Each structure stands twice: as C-alpha cells, then as structure tokens.
Simulated assay, not measured.
Amino acid sequence: MSESIPASLPLRNDLIGEEPYGAPQLDVPVCLNVNENPYAPDPAVCDSIAARVREIAPTLNRYPDREHVALRQAFAAYLKRESGVELSVDQLWGANGSNEIMLQVFQAFGGPGRIALGCDPTYSMYPEYARDTFTTWQVAHRNEDFTLNVERTIAAIGELHPSIVLLTSPNNPTGTPLDMGDLKRILDVCATMPVAGAGEGVHPVVVVDEAYIEFRNPGTPSAATLIAEHSNLAVSRTMSKAFAFAGARVGYMAASKGIIDCLRIVRMPYHLSAVTQAAALAAFEHTDEQLSRVDHLRETRERTAAWLKTQTYKGQPLDVAESASNFLMFGGHFDDRDRVFRELLDRGVLIRVVGPDGWMRVCMGTDEEMARFREALAEVLRIVEA
C-alpha cells in the first residue's frame, strides 16, 4: 500500500498497492508528453467563452440542463461538418472528457461476470476502467507493426464472448489508424456473437475511441459514418486534442439511441456543469479557429517522423511507428529508455515513457518546441553513443 494511505483505511483489496493514473506534470520549458494541442485559443475565442459564462453566471444557483441538449446539438452539427455524419440529438452524449464517457461505457455494459476486450498495446486507462467496474479485461495482441490483427481479434471475440470490444483510431500510444474494412468485419462478427453472462439475443458493443481522429490524413473516414448501419457501434470523441480544449474537459459519444440511453442510466445527476456547457458552446462558435493548427501539426508530425528516422541509437536507426495522430512513438530498441527520458528532462524537454519496451512517445508542439526537442534528443543520442 502507498505510504500516504494508512493501513487502517478499508481500501478495496483489489486497489491496495495501486497508484493513481497520470503522466508526470512538471514545470519544464518544453512539455511534449500528454498529446495536447500546443496552441492556445485565440483572444476572440476567450472573449466568447467569457461572455457565455457571464451570461449564465446569474443562474448558477440552479442545476444545469442535465440532458445538455444545446451542447448535444452542437456535437451533431460538428460531426456533420467534420465527418459528414447526420445524427440526431438522441444519438449523442457528452461528459467530462472522453475518460468519463469510457467509464460510463464500462458502468453500463461491463461489471462482474462481464468481459471487455482490447487490442494491445493501447491506452493504459482501459484496464483501469475495467478494474473500477469489476469488469474482466482481456487483450488480443496487435501485429508487430501495431496494426490490428483482425483474425486474432475475431478469434478472441469468439472465445471470450465479451460485452465490450474496444478499438482505437488512431491508437494510443502507437498512433496507428484503424482500417475501416477491419472494423466492418469485427462489427459483423459482433452483431451475432453472444455475450458471456448476458441473456439470449444480447450482443457485444463495439466502441471506437477516436480521441485523435481530427489528425488523420485527409480523406480518411470516421467510424461514425457506420453508425447508421450498425446499432452496436459507439464512437467516442473529445474536444481535448485537436480542438485545443483539454482544460475544459469535454468528451462525447456518437451511437444509436439505445446505446446513449444506456449511458444515461449510469450518468451522475447533472454531471456536466453549466459553466462547462457554456464554454463548450462558445468554442464551437469558433470551430475554424480551434482547428486552425491541425494541418500544421499534421505536417509537423510528418517532418518529425522523417527526422527521427535519420537518428541512431547505439548504431541502429530509430524506428518510428506509423501515426495518424499528433504524436509519434519512436525508438524500438531503447535498452535504457528511462535514461533517455532523464537526459531529455535535464535539458528541459518532457516526453513520455509509454508503450512496449524500447519505445517512447513525443507529441507535436510548436515549431520552437520541436526544434528544442530535436536539438536535445540529438545531443542525448550522442551521449549514449559515446
């Protein structure tokens, strides 16, 4: 048990020894470890947020709209514009970040006797959602290039009969996109697959986490385009990443009305504050400004990937995983990635030790931050080579 938790407290037995999730939060000149959009909202956006909040401030003695209808309408308008998907308000649901959306998914569809299936390596919070809801977490391993191993995943679905199949596009921490053909195969399998611990005629929910989808290459469709054809599909999104709104904590889900109604059962009363709803609506009024740096960050990703491939670690070129996100997983053969992390941190650059052994992850920052990252990493690699 953590030294800060007295042994006399009745912490759940399965939580004893566990540590809170979270990337390091350090005051450093170059912070490239949590996949944020590095560009602050424009002053006009800030003014709109302040005006919206000021407008609702006199009503803060009352509870907010627990169904956040206006915000769900904004989600629908945005998805129609961004992905060409026409959805009704009752097919959308918001929460305090996509983390809360995912927790609600596990609360609604997981639980004792239920199984959730993911494809590793993937987001390290997924097994924690499972732990917190007493859901069994299982994985089907990805291919060596981190693409989805469809045959292995389908075999696992047939063997385990999960209630939740959790996929990611792009995947975190690898950045790997999800092939739409692969997704359709899994959706078709799940449409008739029974669920362990559930009644007859119950089938798995397929959840696609699209937290970083706006960084995909142009022309790549969103999984949300398949919702009309697949009532067992749910697509999770966030305003935290491309939309440059991480501090506001706004995530949302697009799915059939039936799936949304399941989430409504487990949501906390009035879970989205009036201030959060007002700020998000103001941001959607400035969608162009909020997304104005996405193309540049995508170009930065490609330039950084090309540069990383020219670098060596102990005589071997660095590997770089294919990414459709705003981050890159690189290395592949770091035998002491903790040292690389510390050396970079000593130079004021914070990245992330995450993913399979031998790999590290860096998110895309401003041009100045990326220049400092390249300078620092090149210096660290020279030191390690010596």
Score class of each variant (00 low, 15 high):
298 R>P: 08
369 E>T: 14
29 P>S: 08
238 T>M: 00
50 A>K: 12
132 D>Y: 09
322 E>S: 11
64 P>A: 11
121 P>F: 08
268 M>T: 06
19 E>I: 13
13 N>F: 08
88 S>K: 15
178 L>C: 07
264 R>E: 03
56 I>L: 07
107 Q>A: 08
41 P>E: 02
369 E>R: 10
333 H>A: 08
245 F>G: 12
205 V>R: 08
177 P>M: 04
205 V>H: 10
100 E>A: 14
257 K>P: 03
185 R>K: 14
251 G>L: 03
157 I>K: 06
326 N>G: 02
137 W>L: 03
51 A>C: 06
189 V>K: 14
135 T>K: 05
5 I>T: 05
268 M>Y: 04
145 D>H: 00
202 V>R: 06
29 P>H: 04
373 F>K: 09
153 T>D: 02
239 M>Y: 05
265 I>F: 05
31 C>I: 15
288 D>S: 12
318 L>E: 01
366 T>H: 09
357 D>R: 12
347 R>L: 07
288 D>V: 11
376 A>W: 03
209 D>E: 11
225 T>S: 06
366 T>C: 06
308 L>I: 06
160 L>P: 00
101 I>C: 06
150 V>S: 01
309 K>L: 02
309 K>H: 03
293 R>T: 13
251 G>Y: 00
43 P>W: 01
187 L>Y: 02
222 S>A: 09
222 S>T: 00
89 V>P: 05
243 F>W: 03
9 L>G: 07
82 E>F: 05
187 L>A: 04
139 V>N: 09
148 L>C: 00
39 Y>G: 10
317 P>I: 05
307 W>E: 10
373 F>N: 04
280 A>Y: 02
348 G>S: 01
162 P>H: 07
65 D>C: 03
63 Y>D: 12
286 H>L: 07
4 S>E: 15
67 E>I: 07
146 F>A: 10
169 S>R: 01
55 E>P: 12
328 L>A: 09
219 G>V: 03
313 Y>K: 08
11 L>V: 14
339 R>W: 12
77 A>F: 12
246 A>K: 15
121 P>L: 07
105 V>I: 14
182 D>Q: 14
80 K>T: 14
163 S>H: 06
160 L>M: 05
23 A>T: 09
341 F>K: 11
66 R>H: 15
220 T>K: 07
358 G>E: 00
145 D>R: 05
59 T>H: 11
320 V>F: 00
12 R>Q: 11
362 V>P: 01
46 C>K: 15
96 N>A: 13
152 R>A: 11
210 E>A: 11
179 D>L: 04
139 V>A: 07
223 A>T: 05
61 N>E: 14
66 R>S: 14
46 C>M: 15
288 D>Q: 12
119 C>S: 02
245 F>A: 15
56 I>P: 10
381 L>P: 06
205 V>P: 05
164 I>T: 13
371 A>G: 09
269 P>H: 09
330 F>K: 04
186 I>S: 06
315 G>Y: 02
181 G>E: 10
284 F>N: 14
125 M>L: 07
180 M>L: 14
233 L>K: 00
54 R>I: 07
58 P>N: 11
352 R>S: 15
303 R>V: 11
144 E>K: 15
290 Q>I: 03
250 V>E: 13
93 W>A: 13
347 R>G: 01
261 D>L: 13
321 A>T: 06
52 R>W: 09
148 L>S: 04
133 T>A: 05
108 A>I: 00
141 H>E: 15
46 C>N: 15
83 S>H: 13
367 D>H: 10
289 E>G: 03
